[in-house]
Structure formats: structure tokens, C-alpha cells
Write a protein that binds this DNA or RNA. Structure first.
Lengths: 240, 240
DNA sequence: ATGCTAAGTTATCAACTGATAAATAAGGAG
DNA sequence: CTCCTTATTTATCAGTTGATAACTTAGCAT
């Protein structure tokens, strides 16, 4: 409950002490626009992740410690703010190094597929499969279909993750690379099952609010083991 | 999201057309209360599944072809209506025969675990893993944490499905039944992975709005195959 | 200092939403 | 047909929300 109106005595004391604020709260301070924008987006991620996209601008402003109309100085509408939130989450959170980790397995033969997958998903979980992300991801998916591009994002996941995993599986089993023989949908289905299972794991923790009954690393390792164990039979049916 | 003032003419036109029923429902027709309640709940499932729980009561009423205050004759508040929706979906949609299908494997030895799982999830998908259900399930999970139903429902899933699957796995591998040796959390984790993967499959179709690249039955069969293939190694680690 | 630019606030609007009370009318019972 | 129960509508309120305009003031440049 940080009240915006400053009390009479507080204000006068402040004026006497030159311009230096005694209050350690930076809330009253003015910020350069880019800094304020960053602060607003960060707070919006937290807020909308918690309450959903129908959360109101007044509560959000109060959390930041500013007045509600100030939001409209930086974002023409609430929708624009929400777009900024998703831009930050869905675009900026991809780490460049992941491209290499899931990339061509031949570049580092000593690094096998199981370890690659473990390393990738460990890191991916730390950056992406998180409370704010997974909740806002779901909110986005469930929102109006015309509004935002959940479709685009899933395509991004398929390009960057699913197809790369398939490529690794091909290489591990001595099969021709996707560049020579295109990936089939049934192959992708196998990788989607792994990815989906791991997302579901996060969802159970962050959305379903259930306690996981083992260490995340152990669960991850086990999931990858099951995936790799199930690959050969699935692969024979998928490729024939 | 845009809530800008509507022009005079625009508003008046809108309001005037309110009288004309878009829905060809016989105007003035009265229904007995129980029938009307059923109609409202059914429409509410459709409506809230489509637009989310923040959908308003006026639009819902218009879809049914009744006035908004009439909803309040049968449901004291919107929350009560939403509760009725979830009661219908989460409680009434459970088929009694499923208890037998996933029950004690000894009752019908000729019916192996793979087929039992296939039959169950085929049926379960037809009744539960559907558009309206999966979307409302997610809306519920994402809603206020204090809302009880999500947690209760997940417990129900664990009792009725997860633990039964584990029981079947135990029996198939000649291990003692849960009644003698209690299930471990790590065992449940394996079954959750199967269940989660299949839910994710539905979610991809109904929520993510993606096309599945194979026949549902084939995908289901493949998922169960992978699950059963991965069980032994996972089991050895889980039980040791 | 002085003044200008932009950050921030106050006040307020108009539409929307859940909910209530009073009026109306359908349709079965007698 | 008349009456009476109750399903249904009309009218309306009070609180909420996105958004705008006008005013205020911090802080840098000159």
C-alpha cells in the first residue's frame, strides 16, 4: 500500500534538504523514458502472469508506484502493453547458444544426444519454462485467436527445437540428415511428445501448482531416457 | 480491449437491434426451470470455453435467447454459474465403466495393459479430452488460485487414472500390488508423463489450434507403445 | 537563476459489467 | 373463463475499467 500523495511534513522536509530524497523508495523519482518503459514491461510480465491478461491497468500502476495514466504515455493502449510483454517473452528470451547445442551433432561427436538434450532443456527450463512464461504462454493461447500469434510461436518452436531434435535422432541412428531426406510429420510427433511432456512438467508446477515428487534434473533425465528408449520402435514405424 | 467511446449513431443502432432476436429461438416460449437450467449450463460451457471465464453474462444470455437478468433467477451469481459449468465437466463426465477398464488387471487376463490403456484413452478422449473441456480446464487452472476445483480435480485424476495405471504396470511386471507395497511418487511420475503427453496432444489441437500430423488412434497407440517400452528402465530406477 | 522540455499527476469521461427490484405475461389448475 | 403461480422482461443501479485532457513539476540546458 504505497500511497502516492506525500504527507505534508514529508514534502516540506524533502524540500529543505535540497533535492536529495530522504525516502529510499525510487518511486517518486523521475526516470528517463526508456528506463521507465523497461520497468513497466517487467512489472507487467509479473502482474499479467499472476492475474491474467484481464488484469487492470490501475493495479499494475499501483504495483510500480506510478499513476495509471502514466502507462498511457508510453503505451497507446493496454493491448500495446500486452504486445510488448509477449515480444519480450517470446522473442527476446531465446538464447543464441541454444542454436549450437541442438545443432549439427557432427560438430562435437563426444557430446551425445542424451547429454545435448539434457543440457538444452536444463537451460531452456531456466530461461523459458518458468512461472511467468508458462502462465503467459497459456494466457496467450487461450486468448482471442485473432489477437496474437500463438501459431507463429509454435512454428518457431518446431523450427528451432523439434526439427533439431529430429536431426539429432537421425544422426544418432545413422539415418540420412533432413537436408537429404525431409522430416516426416510422424518423426516430429515423437519429438513433440518429449517437448510436450516437459512443458507439461513445468505446467504442473507453475500452473497446476502441484509439487513435483522428484528433483527436476532427475525427472528431466528420466524423461529423456524414456524418449530415447522409445525412439527406435517409433522410428521404424515413422520411417518404415 | 478497445473501450473507446462509441459514436452516437453507432450506439443507438446497436441498442435498437437488441430487440430483434438473432437466434431463431421461439420468442416468449417458457421452459420448466430444470430444463432452462440445463440449457443455460450447456450454453455456458460453449460460451466460456470460447471466450474465457471473463466472458460477460449479457453475451451469454443473448446466445441462449433470453435476457441477462433471467440468468440470476437460476444462479445467484456468475460464480455459481461457473461452478455449475465445472461440476458438469469435471464430475459428471466421468463414465462409471472406466473404473473397470483401468481396474484390477487380474479380472480379465486376456485384456493386456496396452489394450486397456488404448481403450481407456480412446474413450476418455471422446468424453473428456475435447475442445470445451480442455479449454475450460486451462481457464480454470489459470484462474485464481483460491478457486478450489483445479486442485481437487488433479487429485481426482491421480486417484482414478494415474494410480490405476501404476497398478496395471505393477501387475504386468509381476510386482506386488499397491495394496501391499504403496506406490512411490517416482512411479506416479511415469504415468503422469503418459497422461500429460496425451493431454498435451489434445491441447495442441484444441488450444494451440495445430493440426495433428497423423490419425489420433495411431498417435495414441504410438504414445502407449513408447510409454510401455520406457517403463522397465524407469521402473528399475523408481523402485530399485 | 531562468526557462523550456518532458515526466508525472489530478480529475473525469463513457462504456461495460454484475446484480437487483419491480412490472409483465405465459400457461396450467379450478 | 378466471385466477394464480412463476417464468421472463424492463428499467436501473453501483462499481469497475480503458482512455483522455489539462494541469503540475522535476531536471537539464542556456
Amino acid at each position: 500500500m504505497s500511497r502516492r500523495p506525500v504527507s505534508e511534513t514529508e514534502a516540506s522536509t524533502e524540500r529543505r534538504t535540497k533535492r536529495t530524497r530522504i525516502t529510499p523508495v525510487p518511486a517518486g523519482r523521475r526516470l528517463p523514458s526508456d528506463e521507465r518503459v523497461g520497468q513497466i514491461v517487467a512489472a507487467a510480465i509479473d502482474y499479467f502472469a499472476e492475474v491474467g491478461l484481464e488484469g487492470n491497468t490501475r493495479d499494475l500502476a499501483q504495483r510500480i508506484g506510478i499513476t495509471q495514466p502514466l502507462l498511457y504515455k508510453y503505451f497507446p493502449s493496454k493491448e500495446d502493453l500486452v504486445d510488448a510483454v509477449y515480444g519480450e517473452l517470446f522473442v527476446n528470451r531465446w538464447r543464441a547458444e541454444w542454436n549450437h547445442w541442438l545443432g549439427d551433432p557432427a560438430t562435437d561427436p563426444g557430446w551425445n544426444l542424451a547429454d545435448r538434450l539434457f543440457d538444452f532443456y536444463s537451460s531452456y527450463a531456466a530461461y523459458v519454462f518458468r512461472y511467468d512464461w508458462s502462465r503467459l504462454f497459456m494466457f496467450n493461447l487461450l486468448a482471442d485467436r485473432d489477437a496474437k500469434s500463438a501459431h507463429d510461436f509454435m512454428q518457431l518452436v518446431q523450427d528451432r527445437i523439434i526439427d533439431k531434435i529430429c536431426e539429432g535422432v537421425r544422426a544418432t541412428h545413422g539415418l540420412p540428415p533432413p537436408a537429404h531426406v525431409p522430416l516426416t510429420d510422424r518423426e516430429r510427433e515423437i519429438a513433440w511428445a518429449l517437448h510436450g511432456g516437459l512443458f507439461y512438467l513445468t505446467a504442473r508446477r507453475d500452473i497446476y501448482d502441484l509439487t513435483l515428487h522428484a528433483e527436476p534434473d532427475d525427472i528431466l533425465r528420466a524423461a529423456i531416457d524414456r524418449f530415447l528408449a522409445g525412439v527406435p520402435s517409433a522410428l521404424s514405424k515413422a520411417i518404415g
